[in-house]
């Protein structure tokens, strides 16, 4: 192999190695890789305060309490088995509604048992699929106005 070729290979390889190194270094850093667990898994593994974990679950019906500041909210997250009270401070996305699939990042406050989140991602609730599963039977909201039973 001649020297010219070797030079190209070395430089090209160097670029790729440097990229690989950056990926490897980035993984271990804050804001990089984070473990992603459901509410139950979180309850099982992370009783102590473990920072940087992301917890996934649904917003329990009737649990949203918005404070007048517009950027503080507390709610209960559930995965159908266990629940986790969460308080969050920051911009609340419009997609954050009851039943929405959310991911929070933060840590558990051992004293109050509340999860303090500094990041809140909300996926549009899968209302379409839910509606599709009801399928054959039209949802109660479709009853013509005036003839509907009283709401709860």
């Amino acid at each position: 192999m001649d020297r010219r070729r070797l030079k190209f290979l070395l430089l090209g390889g160097g670029v790729l190695l440097a990229m690989g190194f950056l990926v490897w270094a980035g993984l271990g850093r804050e804001g990089g890789l984070a473990y992603f667990v459901t509410v139950s898994e979180f309850r099982k593994q992370h009783t102590a305060t473990s920072a940087g974990v992301r917890v996934n679950g649904k917003v329990a019906d009737g649990s949203i309490r918005r404070l007048p500041s517009g950027q503080d909210v507390s709610f209960v997250m559930t995965d159908g088995q266990t629940t986790l009270p969460v308080s969050y401070h920051g911009i609340i996305p419009d997609t954050f509604v009851e039943g929405a699939d959310v991911v929070v990042k933060g840590s558990l406050d051992a004293q109050s048992g509340t999860f303090h989140a500094d990041e809140l991602l909300a996926k549009c609730p899968s209302k379409y699929e839910a509606a599709a599963k009801e399928g054959q039977k039209p949802p109660h909201g479709d009853a013509p106005p005036g003839h509907a039973p009283n709401e709860s």
């Binding site: 990229m19 950056l22 990926v23 270094a25 980035g26 993984l27 850093r29 804050e30 804001g31 990089g32 890789l33 984070a34 473990y35 992603f36 667990v37 992301r54 991911v103």
Partner: peptide, 24 residues
């Protein structure tokens, strides 16, 4: 695709935050 790979290899779910993309 790291989250998918991680589940396959280690069985643990992970996510990637924006900072790592910027770093790299």
């Amino acid at each position: 695709t790291f989250p998918l790979i991680s589940v396959q290899l280690t069985g643990r779910k992970v996510t990637m935050g924006p900072p790592i993309f910027n770093t790299v």
